[in-house]
Design a protein around this nucleic acid. Structure first.
Length: 178
DNA sequence: CCCTGATTCGC
DNA sequence: GCGAATCAGG
């Protein structure tokens, strides 16, 4: 399995949402390990997901790795056909602007800290803000939805549907290789 | 022990 | 670029 655009997008979304690497690995499935997720996260330069400042504590120098005698599991995977997942791409691409186009009811922002320039940044996130990410996390325009969330959800009504609809579909096409 | 992310480096 | 092995730590 490779890092398709769809899987990278899902990785970014789940990572931003705060899921752990192993949880994300479980969702991606197809034998993806948490190491794979962490490695990809670092390669995408989105390792610091919240505004925590990085203390850059240098670790002690690592012991030289033992020469690999046993074959590693990195070889070949049974290639799965990427079922109609490409149909989901237009949806995600459509979210790439400052604010999603169609929200059922334009409920007013109920923020504790109001964004100064109209964008809900990661600094404005709270229990009262929808945490659906909008745009590229590395971009200047990156922000969050910020509408009032559905109870018990990190997302507003609209984005909660977007977030969890695919999961419901997934129940009937359980994919396990072996 | 369970888990977390961070890093290295052979592939 | 990828990710197992290994690290440091909760």
């Amino acid at each position: 399995m490779s890092w398709t655009d769809e899987r990278v997008e899902l990785l970014k979304r789940l990572w931003t949402e705060g899921l752990s690497a192993s949880q994300i690995a479980g969702r991606l499935g197809n034998g993806v390990t948490r190491n794979a997720v962490i490695g990809k996260v670092h390669r995408l330069n989105l390792s610091g997901r919240v505004q925590q400042q990085r203390v850059a504590a240098p670790r002690a120098p690592r012991k030289q790795r033992e020469p690999s005698l046993a074959p590693r599991a990195g070889g070949s995977m049974p290639s799965m056909p990427t079922a109609g997942s490409s149909a989901l791409k237009p949806m995600m691409r459509a979210e790439t602007h400052i604010r999603p186009a169609a929200i059922p009811e334009p409920q007013p922002l109920r923020l504790v800290d109001l964004p100064k320039d109209g964008r809900v940044t990661i600094l404005h996130l709270s229990d009262k803000t929808c945490k659906w990410p909008i745009g590229d996390p590395g971009s200047e325009e990156f922000c969050f939805c910020g509408h009032g969330p559905r109870e018990g959800s990190p997302y507003c009504e609209y984005h909660a549907r977007l977030a969890y609809q695919p999961l419901q579909d997934r129940r009937n096409r359980k994919v396990n290789f072996g």
